[in-house]
Write a protein that binds this DNA or RNA. Structure first.
Lengths: 170, 170
DNA sequence: AGTTTATGTCAGCCTTGTTGACATTCCAAG
DNA sequence: CTTGGAATGTCAACAAGGCTGACATAAACT
């Protein structure tokens, strides 16, 4: 199970891309690529007192303005206490605005302020620049494959969250 | 720069996959997929007193047996203090063996013990299973595209490290 | 002999996860 | 209407695993 051809590759040629060696390479590719993926925003964030968690919060609030804390919790997959600390500093610094829900006053609806949108833009621009350059290098067909593999690798629940975001955007 | 067509997409149809919206979706796909990618090993690791950092160390020691600490440091991109803490526990627990170099006796060459290989196998099997299922779902062409995009997204230095590993493996 | 390199260790800090305890608000069953 | 449970959010304390800085050791190089 650990070495040689994967247990699933029973026949020949057609499934040669499923050898353990190929899978291993996929794993390492993900590891190194994710490092590159986060490197540029991380550099910007470390100039301020923020970290990757702040980036994630700002990103998804920008993506779904007015979203509730609970909503964000599900997308980010962290505990509410962990998210709360990040939100608290973002609110204190005037990047995020928290509005008490009109229908259900237990809920807090989150919006970026102008200053928040500014930071989001800087971070996104940096991250998009790298992705744009990668996409341009490899062409649309490779990009389509990339997206299909990533989608197949997500947990079912995240697949749904991802699709929902995709459809809400534009 | 922040909304609408990316600044790089000057002409029409052929570069439509470089809109900010498309890039945004790529970013979110990476985020959600990476969560899935680490979820299975994380579950196994949390049963013991180990974390993702231990997984990474064990993975790359398995991949390049006899590698030195310095080598590992470069691949993992952390400080020696951070790596050392992890290695210390792995060695103390008898999963990793550290041998003084024969040519240069300042170096420590790292190897997995049988017990270490056992853990590595459990973790890799879990991670490979997910990747195998994703690869099988989408087919070889999409996988090739996936790998090409990831490679293009890495920092130059990591690209070299990745290629070296790829070529050393079978 | 003196310098550089590879490694390990100690101390202390920060971010970002975690759990537990608690406050507020809503809603539904009595 | 009241009361109890569920949902939501906040505060406190702790752990993992990054980081820097300082320092020790041993070996190699000049």
């Amino acid at each position: 199970m650990t070495n040689g051809r994967s247990s699933g590759a029973i026949s020949g040629e057609s499934l040669l891309f499923l050898t353990d060696e190929q899978l291993q390479q996929g794993i390492e590719a993900m590891f190194f690529a994710y490092r590159g993926f986060t490197a540029d925003p991380d550099r910007i964030l470390s100039e301020m007192a923020y970290g990757r968690a702040h980036h994630r919060a700002v990103h998804f609030i920008n993506r779904s303005p007015g979203t509730t804390v609970n909503n964000l919790l599900n997308i980010l997959g962290v505990t509410k206490q962990s998210l709360n600390r990040v939100l608290r500093t973002l609110i204190a610094d005037g990047l995020v605005e928290s509005r008490v829900g009109e229908i259900d006053r237990r809920e807090r609806h989150l919006h970026l302020t102008n200053e928040g949108r500014l930071l989001e833009g800087r971070l996104s621009d940096a991250q998009r620049a790298r992705m744009r350059s990668a996409f341009r290098d490899v062409g649309p067909d490779a990009v389509a494959g990339f997206r299909r593999v990533l989608e197949a690798m997500m947990d079912k629940e995240m697949q749904r969250a991802y699709t929902r975001l995709k459809e809400s955007g534009s």
